[in-house]
Amino acid sequence: MPKALLYLTLCALTASASAEAVTAQRQSELHNLVHQDCGSCHGMRLTGGLGPALTPQALAGKNHEFLFITISEGRAGTPMPPWKMLLTKPEIEWIADYLKSPGETP
């Protein structure tokens, strides 16, 4: 439990101002989504699979807007689908922030 609390605190700290609307509960769900569902192509540890790696190192040259647009709209000509129908804007903002600085990854 303390580990989970620490983790949620870390998430809250790393989230940008725009992602504040995402509740702690939802952040936990999004964390699961990123690793388990995005992970089906990008790897559970985000080290890549059929899709590219999404580690902070791999994303070093990509800014927040690029990540936001890629998640929202998908990437034409690749299997990356648009997520804007399933996630709110603040949720996508949270994921973009999380990918840049994941803090402690379980």
């Binding site: 089906s40 192509c41 059929l50 689908p81 648009p82 129908m85 399933l86």
Partner: peptide, 11 residues
């Protein structure tokens, strides 16, 4: 070809 292509969230 006759259908709209839907997004694929898992291959």
């Amino acid at each position: 070809k006759h259908d709209e292509k839907l997004p694929v969230y898992k291959m």
